[in-house]
Design a protein around this nucleic acid. Structure first.
Lengths: 243, 243
DNA sequence: CAGTGGTCTAGACCACCAG
DNA sequence: TGGTGGTCTAGACCACTGA
């Protein structure tokens, strides 16, 4: 369960282990989990290390603590902020559709000046470039080009991007995705888009350019998408700033 | 600065102290704060205690860390809130353009079924309907139709809407605008839009439908806008929800 | 009362980054 | 190479809960 020789930090291993027990339902809401000292003794690790794992799970809303009583499992979070930063996959699932992808190309290329500037890297630094047709319920929804600095998001494979890029970044690479800025505009489908999206020439498309950032402000992703206007509306909510 | 005898935990004292330095501007964005070992030595406290304070500040977005480099002050949270809910006037000013309007029509009409449902009022309840061409630097930018329940936003005049509708609602009517949901899609300009926006037929437009709400959740405004795609991009930022 | 989480110590080794 | 944050240890005392 816990491998002290692994390069993955012990607290992270414990975190994943407990998270799994919760998500699989083996630990039920309001059920007490073993005490910090029990974990400490069972896996022969320091109590502070156990606390680091539990702290993260408390911060993420998986657990809550009660002084003198113990640590308990939280109710599953259903809220899921609607305006949150999500991947295409997450977006489509929320709309009740089945997402899928068709890979067009997947290569490592040197960053062009404009791309380099947006990703805050030097010109010609290698970047992954992934082109995909994104589909919902097996119908083409968007043509998407994703660029990621190769030295930041290491070891990408076709399998990973087919599964979940964000999950890979957050869990395997232990990077924290923090926020993104998006530019949204209307346009007419270009020839490539006409072909891949199977629309008539002259059809409108919604162009979305997203730059995503890590916790420390490093840009790690530039995504350009062209959505079929007849199938996709972008929905979001905004708060009025306090005056 | 740090009182070891205080019943307030040391890490919390240090947290508040650093937070104050940031909010007062004595620590500037991207400036490095003293290292964990420096704090530890200066206040004669354990490095783990310092880390607990810094961890909390990192989680709250006040600081960010870089391995091997140090710990730095984050941009003020105020700067991060660029995605606020704004009026056309506020939006254009922020883009460095001069906003103006040309009124097309301004009347009170009975609410149609669809409109009534979106504004959560009964069918045929009187609503203000305002149609305007919105301009930036004297060039047509958008065709906009605003609907407001007449019993909620009372006594509207042409003068008020030419000045600032939001200001009137917030200051004269003492209502608090809280949030809005928007649907954004791409389309081809219809005939009215072609005429008012002075674009070629077949030109793309960005359609934005906004429903705005007061503090108590009452919808008070439905705005349908068609923006010239060649002049307008919608920009916003989103946060990644904690997992 | 024994057990829990909350706080704190004084070390340690590591990977990373800069000069 | 020296300093940084990241991880980890093996203890300690406290206030609090429940039996």
């Amino acid at each position: 369960m816990i491998d002290k020789q692994s390069p993955i930090p012990i607290y992270h291993q414990l975190e994943e282990y407990i998270k799994q027990l919760i998500e699989s339902g083996k630990l039920k809401p309001d059920e007490a989990i073993p005490s910090e000292r029990e974990y400490s003794e069972q896996y022969q690790i320091s109590r502070m290390t156990v606390r680091q794992a539990l702290n993260n799970l408390v911060n993420d809303g998986y657990l809550y603590r009660q002084k003198g009583r113990g640590t308990f499992v939280n109710k599953q979070k259903v809220e899921q902020k609607l305006q949150g930063l999500t991947s295409f996959t997450e977006d489509m699932k929320e709309r009740g559709m089945v997402p899928s992808s068709r890979l067009i190309s997947f290569e490592i290329i040197p960053a062009e000046p404009q791309l380099a500037r947006k990703l805050d890297i030097k010109e010609n630094t290698p970047v992954y470039e992934i082109k995909r047709v994104r589909m919902a319920d097996n119908l083409p929804m968007a043509l998407e080009t994703t660029c990621l600095p190769a030295n930041l998001v290491k070891g990408l494979t076709e399998e990973i991007i087919n599964k979940s890029l964000y999950q890979h970044i957050e869990e395997k690479l232990s990077l924290t995705i923090s926020e993104a800025t998006q530019q949204i505009e209307a346009s007419i489908a270009k020839e490539t888009e006409v072909n891949h999206l199977q629309v008539e020439s002259g059809s409108p498309v919604l162009l979305i350019v997203r730059t995503s950032f890590l916790e420390d402000g490093t840009p790690f992703e530039l995504v350009k998408s062209a959505y079929r206007a007849d199938r996709y509306k972008f929905v979001h909510t905004m708060q009025r700033a306090a005056k």
